[in-house]
């Protein structure tokens, strides 16, 4: 490739397009196929019977069977898992963002001894994986009676989302010009009024990003619900999917339908908040 470039006549338009659109489209096609085909297999598999799948795993539904999806959508389990996931994710997000933005405000708009140390402490928290803390966390939750309780997952989840929330919010809040606070003070607004009426609305983009991050983290988490819940009625969607898989391991079609349905909320949320998720993840990780 290098040599063809070197001998290219000087008059040729020098745009670096030698890779060629063909190769580019081929690569794109391969990526799309590798990404989409497994998902399609799951979704379409849900429209077949297990017998059909066993006979010929790769075929299209013939005829289309709706009963798998219908059974799951009319069963209480799926909806209960979904509701539990929603409750936990919402509580975890609200708590993390509320507490995180208050702390972010204090860490950005007040000066006090130990401020940087405190900020560093939260930053180091980014490195604590939930996995490391699970055994003692489990014992702690048992002691305070939060096992088999949705809050037993939501609250620790919020705590583990605090570091990233604060690490994103504080610089954002620091960047908001101090003149605004001055102006608010002239108008007689207290510090907390300023926080509530001016700073928070101005921080909206960052608040959306941290909310999305906290929500997705909680939504996808598996380990903590696995330890805290024994009773199926408390299961979240990830836990439910994994359990369903092992319970009905003979009934492939039902597993596929269940899995497909459990992808729907995440995919819907993603297409709705795509820019925020991508921006948040690629942005936040640079901390």
């Amino acid at each position: 490739m290098t040599s063809t470039a070197a001998v290219a006549p000087a008059k040729m338009p020098r745009r670096p397009r030698r890779v060629g659109p063909a190769l580019r489209y081929l690569a794109a096609l391969v990526i799309v196929a590798v990404t989409v085909v497994p998902l399609l297999f799951v979704i379409l598999g849900g429209f077949r019977t297990t017998a059909q799948i066993n006979q010929s795993p790769a075929a299209l539904p013939e005829p289309w069977v709706l009963s798998n999806y219908a059974t799951i959508l009319t069963s209480a389990d799926f909806w209960r898992f979904l509701t539990n996931s929603v409750i936990i994710a919402v509580v975890a997000t609200v708590v993390a963002v509320a507490f995180g933005s208050m702390a972010g405000f204090a860490l950005s708009h007040y000066r006090f001894a130990g401020r940087e140390a405190l900020y560093t402490l939260f930053t180091v928290g980014l490195l604590f994986p939930l996995g490391v803390a699970t055994l003692p966390l489990y014992l702690l939750l048992r002691q305070i009676g939060l096992l088999e309780n949705l809050m037993g997952v939501a609250i620790p989840q919020a705590a583990f989302s605090l570091p990233v929330t604060i690490v994103i919010l504080r610089p954002f809040m620091t960047a908001i010009p101090g003149e605004l606070a001055d102006a608010a003070a002239i108008d007689g607004a207290g510090r907390l009024t300023y926080f509530w009426r001016i700073l928070l609305p101005l921080s909206r983009p960052a608040l959306v990003t941290v909310s999305v991050l906290a929500f997705v983290t909680s939504w996808n988490s598996y380990l903590l619900p696995l330890l805290v819940f024994n009773d199926q009625s408390h299961f979240t969607l990830p836990l439910g999917v994994a359990t369903f898989q092992s319970q009905y391991s003979q009934d492939t079609a039902r597993i596929l339908a269940f899995t497909a349905l459990s992808m729907v909320p995440a995919l819907a949320f993603f297409s709705f908040a795509e820019r925020r998720i991508v921006g948040g993840l690629t942005g936040s990780v640079k901390g």
Partner: peptide, 24 residues
């Protein structure tokens, strides 16, 4: 004001992140 703003986050972080790691 400061303690009002910082206490919730600190408490949450201390109880559910730092304490379990220390206990480990």
């Amino acid at each position: 004001e400061l303690s009002l703003l910082l206490a919730p986050a600190l408490l949450l972080f201390a109880v559910f992140v730092l304490l379990p790691i220390a206990l480990a």
